[in-house]
Structure formats: C-alpha cells, structure tokens
Design a protein around this nucleic acid. Sequence first.
DNA 1: TCCCAGGCAAGGC
DNA 2: GCCTTGCATGGG
Length: 285
Amino acid sequence: MAGDFLFITLTMRFTLQEIIVDNLIDFDINHILQCGQVFRFDNLGYNDYYVYSGDKRCRVVQGECTASILTNDIDYFHNYFDLDRDYQLIKQQLKGLPFMQQAIDNGYGIRILNQQKFETLISFIISANNHIPRIKSIISRICSRLGNNMGEYFAFPNPQQMAAVDEDFYTQIGAGYRAKYLATTARAVANGFDLQSLDNLDSASARKQLCALMGVGNKVADCILLFGYHKQDVFPVDTWIKKVYTDIVGDGCTNNNLVNKRLLEIYGSNSGYAQQYLFFNKRGM
DNA sequence: TCCCAGGCAAGGC
DNA sequence: GCCTTGCATGGG
C-alpha cells in the first residue's frame, strides 16, 4: 500500500494540467513574449513555447481559436498571464488616445505578465543599455550557473544564491559593467531589502525605494513596477519610447524625466498598458 | 565594420 | 537640481 501511495503522489506531481484560453482577441503568445517584458522563454516551434518564471515552467501551445497553457501549477500561471483582467475594457479606455488605435491593432494580444519581483529586478538591471538577445543570454547563464536544477531546466536563483558569488562571477558570465550592480543589489536583497513591502506603496514612493538599489534608475524602476508589481500608472522611457514620443509630441525634448511626465499626463492611469502597446508597435513586431 | 541597445553612476556645475 | 561622460558586450 505504501508503494501505491508513493506512485500516486509522484504521478500527480508530474502530471501536467491545462488552462484553456478560449478567446484570442486579448491573448497572443507572440505578442506577450515579444513586447520586451520577459526574457526567459524558448520557442519550440510555430506558436509553441516554454515560458519560465522563478522555479516554474509552463508550455504554451496556441492554435487558431484557443491557446493551451500546460503546467503543474494552474493557479500560478493563471495569475502569471493575468487571465482575470478585462483587456477589452483597457483597450476601450485607451482607444481614443494618440497612436493607440494602430498600436492596439498590431499588439492586440499583449497582456502584462505578473512576474516575480526579484527576477524582474535582476532582469531589468541587466537590460540597461543592452540588446534583448544579449539580455536573454546573460539571464540564461545566471540561471544555469546559480539556479536550482529542476531536471529539464534551471530555476531563477534566489537572492541568497545570487549573493553567494562576487562581482567577478558576473563579469565572467558576460554582464559587462553591470556585474557590480548585480553583486551589490543581490546582496542588498539577501541582507533584508524587502521587495514585497513595496507592494503597499504608491508608485512614486516605491520607485524612490527601488532607485536606492545599485543599477536601478528611473527607467529600470518603472519596468520593475510595471512587470513585477503590476503598477499601471508608470511609463518606462527607453530609447524606443523616445522615438514614439518624437512621433506623438515632436517637441524635441530629450530629457527622459520630462518625457516620462508628459507621457503620464497623456495616458494617465492606463500608462503601463499604453506603453506596452506602443513599445511593441514601434519595434515593428 | 561600426552602430546601437528596454540606462546607470559619478562627477561637474 | 540638471547636464555630460564613461562604460562592457555582442547582435545586426
């Protein structure tokens, strides 16, 4: 009997369950993965991906009318893909604002993922002045060298695991001048910087706290707030968004803080969503 | 090749 | 406070 129980337990642990997304008007896995919010995924074929988050993995297979999310943690990925949110309502609210109609038409399937805070923090420190393919490869090496071996893949390391190595390690895996930022910030979090507590703050206060971490400036903080905290009243300004700003306003402003302020005024409480549609649209994907 | 990338820290003013 | 400069690396 004890053997039977063990067998059932193991079977349940490795049996994948399925989330069916039955409305592809507001879900397209390519849009979701290619709008620059996440760097850990593998393309297995046409509309077929592994997506990794923390120590978890799911497989997303998208067909003509439905998408299937295969995972052994349904609740986690239901929240991860933000499936309870009404994106029709968001699009309705954004539609009349500058450049939104075309951007929404192009990236209609974008959803803002609910990613883990520490992973988002580290990922966007690496993103600074960097290309997306290289960001992905650096993160991949950090996982395979420091993260737990999950069998078929590696988990994203926790703060203690990242704090256990020094700056030289991050230089060796190709992080460039961000090596110091990674070593310093991983130690700050491992030593008690409480990422979770920022959930209770308004965006401006949380942004200020995040900017105290080495390697985190206004833009990186805004990305962390949007992708790790789902704060919607932020507008990360990078080189692509500055091009968009030139298209929309065209006043020659080159000050990122002013551009950020003016875009927030235009897009208001839905700024985070607007930013993702505009970023995706500008990168021409 | 040479430019550029989901910018930041440090230093000068 | 704002503005400028230096910065590691590799994909296109």
